[in-house]
Computed example of a mutant assay.
Amino acid sequence: MDYPNDQAPGAPVRSGIPEHGRIPKYYAVKARIAALLEELGEGGVIPTERDLAERYDVARETVRQAVRELVLEGRLRRRGRGTVVAGPKLTQPLSLASYTEGVRRQGRTPGRNLVTLDRFPCPDALAAETGLNRGEPVWHLERVLLADEERVGLESTYVAVGRVPRLDTDFDPDSSFYAYLTTRGIAFGDADERIETVLATPREALLIGTPPALPMLLIHRISRDVDGGPLERVRSLYRGDRFSFTTRLSGTTRLSG
């Protein structure tokens, strides 16, 4: 099937041109820089703001706004004092699959850096949300998520100590928590998941290594075992410029609109 130039699959509607047809100067520069990225390829260093401003005969602030948007979209990334062409985003399925499996399927090497592992009595809010008993001991496992040594997210997991009493001694923090549960005969049944866009807190931005203004994808998950009992509560924060998520809708799903 033939598509108009601005209606090809994956292209923005009308290529971002407003109905009145007047294109903001920064957007025109952004489009020209985007074409340049195709020539440079992944890892290529783009010219400086001054060089781009001279090349396109615009003010440096116009170039700065265009580059800023390309960084937020994940098409460029900062490296040291320069800006380079970013690789494709990591795509994670919305399913009961581990982060490790999703990253490995894309030929990348997953990893995690432990931030904290502690235990405390289950607070009222967590008990109400998960079905755990108020006051029962729970673990809190917090780790920075890596892909090829690049920091891409932050994950916090809450699980009852009674489920995994030796988590602090038997578990390798750099490994898959789901695989750890499986080896102990704990099977996942189902889960409720919610996604929203947020800005990282100053602490989260520092741990992930991103500017506080960078949009993040936040996933809340409450998992249950095959008997419907509470299993884990997970809060996963992913860089919006490095991740996208996919799911499959079955024919029984009713669509509207």
Results as ranks from 00 to 15, higher is better:
G41T: 06
G41L: 00
E42Q: 14
G43I: 05
G44V: 03
G44L: 04
V45E: 15
V45H: 04
P47W: 02
T48Q: 04
L52A: 04
L52K: 00
L52M: 03
L52N: 05
A53M: 03
A53D: 02
E54R: 12
E54K: 10
V58H: 00
A59P: 05
A59E: 14
E61T: 15
E61K: 11
T62D: 03
V63L: 04
R64C: 05
Q65D: 12
E69G: 02
E69N: 10
L70S: 00
L70K: 04
L70G: 01
L70D: 00
V71N: 07
L72N: 10
L72T: 09
L72M: 11
R75I: 07
R75W: 10
L76C: 00
R77A: 08
R79W: 03
R79D: 15
G80W: 01
G82R: 11
V84F: 00
V84C: 02
V84L: 05
V84I: 14
V85T: 03
A86S: 06
G87F: 05
G87S: 04
G87R: 00
P88N: 02
K89Y: 06
K89S: 03
Q92P: 01
Q92C: 06
Q92G: 12
P93Y: 03
P93F: 02
L94W: 03
L94G: 06
S95Y: 09
S95D: 13
L96F: 09
L96Y: 05
S98G: 12
T100Y: 14
E101D: 11
E101F: 10
G102S: 15
G102Q: 11
V103S: 10
V103I: 13
V103F: 05
R104F: 05
R104G: 07
Q106P: 00
G107Y: 08
R108D: 08
R108A: 14
T109A: 15
G111N: 07
R112Y: 13
R112K: 15
N113F: 09
N113I: 15
N113R: 15
L114Q: 11
L114T: 07
V115D: 12
V115G: 09
V115T: 08
T116P: 00
T116Q: 15
L117V: 09
L117D: 12
D118I: 07
D118S: 15
D118W: 12
R119N: 14
R119W: 14
